[in-house]
Amino acid sequence: MKNLIHLFVTSALTLGAAAVMGQESGNLNVQTIVQKEEIVVDIDGRQRTQLVAATEVVPGDEVVYTITFHNISDKAAENVVVTNPIAAELTYIDRSAFGPGARIEFSVDGGRSYAVAEQLAVLEDDGETRPARPEDFTHIRWSLATDLVAGAQGVARFHARLN
Protein backbone atom coordinates (compact mmCIF):
# COMPACT_ATOMS: atom_id res chain seq x y z
CA MET A 1 0.00 0.00 0.00
CA LYS A 2 2.95 2.27 0.67
CA ASN A 3 4.02 1.87 -2.95
CA LEU A 4 0.56 2.72 -4.19
CA ILE A 5 0.50 5.97 -2.22
CA HIS A 6 3.95 6.80 -3.45
CA LEU A 7 2.89 6.26 -7.04
CA PHE A 8 -0.18 8.41 -6.61
CA VAL A 9 1.95 11.20 -5.23
CA THR A 10 4.32 10.85 -8.16
CA SER A 11 1.49 10.88 -10.62
CA ALA A 12 0.04 14.01 -9.06
CA LEU A 13 3.39 15.75 -9.41
CA THR A 14 3.75 14.56 -12.98
CA LEU A 15 0.28 15.74 -13.83
CA GLY A 16 1.14 19.13 -12.40
CA ALA A 17 4.27 19.40 -14.48
CA ALA A 18 2.48 18.27 -17.59
CA ALA A 19 -0.27 20.80 -17.06
CA VAL A 20 2.27 23.59 -17.00
CA MET A 21 4.34 22.53 -19.95
CA GLY A 22 2.43 20.04 -22.05
CA GLN A 23 3.99 17.81 -24.59
CA GLU A 24 5.03 20.35 -27.15
CA SER A 25 4.72 23.63 -25.36
CA GLY A 26 7.25 22.93 -22.62
CA ASN A 27 11.00 22.97 -22.56
CA LEU A 28 11.40 19.94 -24.77
CA ASN A 29 9.42 18.65 -27.65
CA VAL A 30 9.65 14.85 -27.32
CA GLN A 31 8.48 12.67 -30.17
CA THR A 32 8.64 8.94 -30.81
CA ILE A 33 8.10 7.24 -34.09
CA VAL A 34 8.11 3.55 -34.93
CA GLN A 35 9.34 2.35 -38.30
CA LYS A 36 10.24 -0.79 -40.18
CA GLU A 37 13.27 -1.42 -42.31
CA GLU A 38 12.37 -2.04 -45.90
CA ILE A 39 14.78 -3.18 -48.58
CA VAL A 40 14.31 -1.23 -51.79
CA VAL A 41 16.08 -1.61 -55.09
CA ASP A 42 17.05 1.63 -56.75
CA ILE A 43 17.10 2.25 -60.49
CA ASP A 44 20.70 1.05 -60.68
CA GLY A 45 19.67 -2.28 -59.20
CA ARG A 46 21.40 -1.63 -55.87
CA GLN A 47 19.68 -2.76 -52.74
CA ARG A 48 19.43 -0.36 -49.88
CA THR A 49 17.56 -0.31 -46.63
CA GLN A 50 15.18 2.49 -45.83
CA LEU A 51 12.92 3.13 -42.89
CA VAL A 52 9.21 3.29 -43.52
CA ALA A 53 6.37 3.96 -41.13
CA ALA A 54 5.27 0.87 -39.24
CA THR A 55 1.66 0.68 -38.22
CA GLU A 56 1.03 -3.00 -38.77
CA VAL A 57 3.50 -5.75 -37.99
CA VAL A 58 3.57 -9.51 -37.74
CA PRO A 59 5.51 -11.65 -35.26
CA GLY A 60 9.16 -11.75 -36.25
CA ASP A 61 9.16 -8.28 -37.73
CA GLU A 62 11.92 -5.91 -36.70
CA VAL A 63 10.82 -2.42 -35.75
CA VAL A 64 12.86 0.71 -35.09
CA TYR A 65 11.90 3.19 -32.40
CA THR A 66 13.31 6.68 -32.75
CA ILE A 67 12.95 9.25 -29.99
CA THR A 68 13.73 12.87 -30.80
CA PHE A 69 13.92 15.60 -28.18
CA HIS A 70 14.16 19.22 -29.16
CA ASN A 71 14.86 21.96 -26.70
CA ILE A 72 12.35 24.58 -27.77
CA SER A 73 12.92 26.80 -24.74
CA ASP A 74 15.51 29.48 -24.22
CA LYS A 75 17.09 27.64 -21.29
CA ALA A 76 19.53 24.75 -21.28
CA ALA A 77 18.23 21.35 -20.18
CA GLU A 78 20.73 19.72 -17.82
CA ASN A 79 21.13 16.06 -16.84
CA VAL A 80 18.91 14.94 -19.68
CA VAL A 81 17.80 11.31 -19.32
CA VAL A 82 15.60 9.62 -21.90
CA THR A 83 13.79 6.49 -20.78
CA ASN A 84 11.93 4.13 -23.07
CA PRO A 85 10.21 0.92 -22.03
CA ILE A 86 10.50 -2.20 -24.16
CA ALA A 87 7.00 -3.59 -24.42
CA ALA A 88 6.54 -7.18 -23.25
CA GLU A 89 5.66 -8.22 -26.80
CA LEU A 90 9.00 -6.91 -28.09
CA THR A 91 12.54 -8.22 -27.75
CA TYR A 92 15.38 -5.73 -27.84
CA ILE A 93 17.89 -6.44 -30.57
CA ASP A 94 21.35 -6.73 -29.13
CA ARG A 95 23.60 -3.69 -29.58
CA SER A 96 20.96 -1.80 -31.51
CA ALA A 97 20.54 1.09 -29.06
CA PHE A 98 21.99 4.28 -30.46
CA GLY A 99 22.35 7.76 -28.99
CA PRO A 100 25.05 10.30 -29.84
CA GLY A 101 26.79 11.56 -26.71
CA ALA A 102 24.71 9.40 -24.41
CA ARG A 103 25.55 6.69 -21.92
CA ILE A 104 23.19 3.82 -22.72
CA GLU A 105 21.99 1.58 -19.91
CA PHE A 106 19.33 -1.08 -19.54
CA SER A 107 16.97 -2.33 -16.90
CA VAL A 108 15.91 -5.92 -16.30
CA ASP A 109 13.59 -5.11 -13.39
CA GLY A 110 10.91 -2.95 -14.90
CA GLY A 111 12.89 0.27 -14.71
CA ARG A 112 13.79 0.21 -11.02
CA SER A 113 17.53 -0.06 -11.66
CA TYR A 114 19.81 0.41 -14.62
CA ALA A 115 23.28 -0.67 -15.66
CA VAL A 116 25.27 -1.10 -18.84
CA ALA A 117 24.33 -4.30 -20.64
CA GLU A 118 27.47 -6.23 -19.65
CA GLN A 119 26.86 -5.67 -15.94
CA LEU A 120 23.27 -6.86 -15.80
CA ALA A 121 22.38 -10.22 -14.36
CA VAL A 122 19.15 -12.13 -14.00
CA LEU A 123 18.15 -14.42 -11.15
CA GLU A 124 16.90 -17.73 -12.50
CA ASP A 125 14.13 -19.78 -10.90
CA ASP A 126 16.73 -22.24 -9.59
CA GLY A 127 18.47 -19.48 -7.67
CA GLU A 128 21.39 -19.20 -10.09
CA THR A 129 22.35 -15.89 -11.60
CA ARG A 130 23.22 -15.54 -15.24
CA PRO A 131 24.23 -12.64 -17.45
CA ALA A 132 21.24 -10.76 -18.79
CA ARG A 133 20.23 -11.36 -22.37
CA PRO A 134 18.61 -8.83 -24.69
CA GLU A 135 15.21 -10.49 -24.18
CA ASP A 136 15.47 -9.71 -20.47
CA PHE A 137 15.65 -5.96 -20.98
CA THR A 138 12.55 -4.06 -19.92
CA HIS A 139 13.76 -0.48 -20.33
CA ILE A 140 16.48 1.48 -22.06
CA ARG A 141 17.92 4.70 -20.67
CA TRP A 142 20.04 7.27 -22.47
CA SER A 143 21.88 9.73 -20.21
CA LEU A 144 23.31 12.70 -22.06
CA ALA A 145 26.85 13.66 -21.14
CA THR A 146 26.33 17.31 -21.94
CA ASP A 147 23.54 19.83 -21.53
CA LEU A 148 20.96 20.17 -24.25
CA VAL A 149 21.26 23.86 -24.91
CA ALA A 150 18.43 26.03 -26.13
CA GLY A 151 17.48 25.10 -29.68
CA ALA A 152 19.50 21.87 -29.64
CA GLN A 153 18.07 18.54 -30.69
CA GLY A 154 18.96 14.99 -29.68
CA VAL A 155 18.04 11.56 -30.87
CA ALA A 156 17.85 8.07 -29.36
CA ARG A 157 17.03 4.93 -31.21
CA PHE A 158 16.73 1.18 -30.77
CA HIS A 159 15.60 -1.86 -32.71
CA ALA A 160 13.29 -4.56 -31.42
CA ARG A 161 11.66 -7.68 -32.77
CA LEU A 162 8.01 -8.53 -32.32
CA ASN A 163 7.62 -11.75 -30.38
Partner: peptide, 22 residues
Protein backbone atom coordinates in the same frame (compact mmCIF):
# COMPACT_ATOMS: atom_id res chain seq x y z
CA UNK B 1 9.32 7.72 -24.08
CA UNK B 2 9.96 9.89 -21.08
CA UNK B 3 12.62 12.56 -20.76
CA UNK B 4 13.71 13.93 -17.42
CA UNK B 5 16.02 16.89 -17.08
CA UNK B 6 16.81 19.87 -14.90
CA UNK B 7 16.14 23.46 -15.79
CA UNK B 8 18.04 25.85 -13.57
CA UNK B 9 18.15 23.14 -10.90
CA UNK B 10 14.46 22.26 -11.11
CA UNK B 11 13.68 18.69 -12.19
CA UNK B 12 11.22 18.32 -15.03
CA UNK B 13 9.78 15.20 -16.58
CA UNK B 14 8.24 15.20 -19.98
CA UNK B 15 6.46 12.53 -22.03
CA UNK B 16 6.52 11.88 -25.70
CA UNK B 17 3.56 11.20 -27.87
CA UNK B 18 2.43 7.59 -28.11
CA UNK B 19 3.45 5.63 -31.16
CA UNK B 20 1.48 2.48 -31.77
CA UNK B 21 1.78 -0.62 -33.85
CA UNK B 22 -0.95 -3.19 -34.39
Amino acid sequence: AQVSFDVAGTPVTQDSNISSIT
